[in-house]
Nucleic acid binder design. Structure first.
Length: 524
RNA sequence: GCUCCGUUGGUGUAGUCCGGCCAAUCAUCUUGCCCUCUCACGGCAAGGACCAGGGUUCGAAUCCCUGACGGAGCACCA
């Protein structure tokens, strides 16, 4: 019987089911029609009035490509669920993760580039009093104690599951010592406030973790410079997530234990812990430079990179300068999903998304790199290729040929061979000896071939530029700078235009200087 | 050492919760063809994956076990 059912085709089974249980069939087919999202649905959305998320960057520099994943994803979820998100700068370590004062605005600028706008922006170092208040409440609830063990001593005790003597201090002392911490009466390392969790918890990472510690170095922000007692991420972040109404937390797998740690605090306060999603790390191919803000900062300071927007840097500022739209970056990052495994992002997926966005508007020009000069005889004075092959109404360009042309070395035909100068005509390279003056006087002679020679595959079409009255161009790319000359009409482009240098690739016009023009290579 | 987590084509992803419609989706990628006065755009086609081994079952990418590989945490960093 079962075998007979198995032998039925899908169609047949469907028909049979329709007879037997039409309502169940409807249900099954409804499931199939669920619209497809690139991102998985967030968990338990219906349990909340509004989906609220947060991005919690450490303001230590402008963002690299990997950082864009957070705003890309939560911004997309915000749109899907009509939710909101807050940007919270977690700048609670003035020493080892010392904030960079320029980074706050730089990061907001990067989010703007990606096309998203945070509903709120808050800064943790503005909120110390709030954290202190909650610490006091936690102490009163018996959930924290001051501890003067050295890190090493406590670590040993903790690893063997033993409490330190400070754990059973009387509440009065704990309160006094914590106030002394707040008042800055201890030096770095002398005293911490620990959350009382479970000293025998099977996961050593969760045992009585530090909530506050002393830091001697003043915070770079003036508003926070007087504070010496600073909360650790797990405490600060946990409190803020609750206070700002965050319903869905998305963060890296490196913080997998954070939720478990923070739950102890939430339990003391009788708060509901938000939904949590952990995702893996992102690596990006095509760059020599590591995806690390501190590494980038070092390279810039050492002069290996010209700045955060150097085309060789895997930063958002760099992509922006290259003419890649934030939208394309978002699209590629969304495609990575939110899985817990580490992922590699191919730049080609960003390029593919961007090409689709810019191709229609990108005017076509010729750029010849490392050009070889030729005289042209027998043809018209100029060539007239279209500005855009799909839009004749945009007109055509004018490229003078009478004064000679330059070709890329790879496009130079062998003596006696033909090549089609795009928008101009078919030319044949003279054989050696036709002129006695030498290499500089090599000549291309226009033939009367019509375009059929190209259609038949006998002659290659190449791009070219005039040998005189051309425009010097420096093109900056992730692999270094290249130079070349562009046709005269290229001067009519304006800064920020993304153009396509035919057979070379897309580029963003960065500057038209008196000596030369500078463009940034976008992608093939 | 202790504790978590993961493993689908070159890359990413869907499917895994609730086993059958999955000889496995979509995108990117690579190759070929068509279009084309670009190696762009567009069109067509092809290529390429369920980590391994056991088990449960009529049936396993999906459930269970073991192993391998990879990642993360055990910080007075974020």
């Amino acid at each position: 019987m079962v075998a007979r059912v198995n032998d039925l085709s899908t169609e047949a089974k469907r028909d049979r089911l329709e007879d037997l249980a039409p309502e169940e069939l409807a249900e099954i087919e409804a499931e199939d029609e669920e619209d497809e999202h690139d991102l998985p649905d967030l968990p338990n959305v219906d349990d909340y009035d509004e989906v609220r998320m947060r991005a919690a960057p450490n303001p230590n520099g402008p963002w690299h490509i990997g950082h864009a994943r957070m705003p890309a994803v939560i911004g997309t979820y915000k749109e899907r669920y009509d939710g909101s998100f807050v940007v919270r700068f977690d700048d609670t370590d003035p020493e080892t993760k010392r904030p960079d004062l320029d980074a706050y605005d730089a990061i907001l600028d990067d989010i703007d580039y990606l096309g998203f706008e945070p509903d709120d922006v808050i800064v943790a170092s503005d909120r110390l009093e709030t954290y202190y208040e909650h610490a006091r409440d936690l102490i009163d609830a018996g959930g924290a104690y001051t501890c003067s063990c050295s890190g090493e001593t406590f670590s040993e005790l903790k690893n063997s599951g033993e409490a330190c003597p400070h754990r059973e201090k009387d509440p009065e002392t704990i309160r006094e010592e914590f106030e002394a911490m707040v008042d800055g009466e201890y030096d770095s390392g002398e005293m911490v406030l620990r959350v009382r969790t479970d000293i025998e918890h099977k996961n050593p990472a969760l045992r009585d973790w530090v909530a506050f510690r002393m830091i001697d170095t003043p915070h770079p922000r003036e508003e926070a410079a007087e504070y010496r007692c600073w909360p650790m991420l797990d405490f600060q972040s946990g409190v803020d997530d609750h206070l700002t109404g965050v319903t869905h937390i998305i963060r890296g797998i490196d913080l997998q234990d954070s939720a478990k740690r923070q739950r102890f605090v939430y339990d003391y306060f009788d708060w509901e812990y938000p939904e949590v999603i952990h995702w893996g790390h992102v690596q990006v191919d095509a760059y020599d430079v590591k995806l690390s803000t501190s590494t980038l900062k070092e390279k810039i300071e050492a002069g290996d990179l010209d700045g955060w927007d150097d085309p060789r840097a895997p930063t958002l500022k760099s992509l922006r300068r290259r003419g890649i739209r934030g939208e394309a970056v978002v699209e590629a990052l969304i495609g990575l999903g939110t899985s817990t495994s580490n992922v590699d992002l191919s730049m080609s997926s960003i390029y593919a998304a961007n090409r689709e966005l810019v191709d229609d508007d990108a005017e076509r020009y010729f750029l010849v790199r490392d050009g070889e000069r030729f005289d042209v005889e027998g043809g018209p004075d100029a060539g007239h290729p279209p500005i855009h092959p799909d839009h004749e109404d945009r007109g055509e360009r004018t490229i003078p040929a009478a004064g000679g042309v330059v070709l890329e070395p790879g496009d130079v035909p062998a003596a006696g061979e033909r090549v089609w100068l795009k928008g101009y005509a078919c030319v044949r390279r003279e054989r050696d000896g036709a002129s006695a003056i030498g290499a500089d006087s090599e000549t291309l002679v226009a033939t009367d071939d019509d375009i059929d020679v190209v259609r038949d595959g006998d002659v290659d079409v190449v791009h070219w530029a005039p040998a005189e009255d051309n425009i010097d161009v420096q093109m900056r790319t992730p692999d270094g700078d290249v130079t070349g000359v562009a046709e005269p009409d290229f001067a009519e482009t304006t800064v920020d235009d993304v153009v396509q240098f035919e057979r070379v690739g897309f580029a963003r016009v960065d500057e038209h200087g008196s000596e030369e023009s500078v463009v940034y290579w976008t992608h093939p």
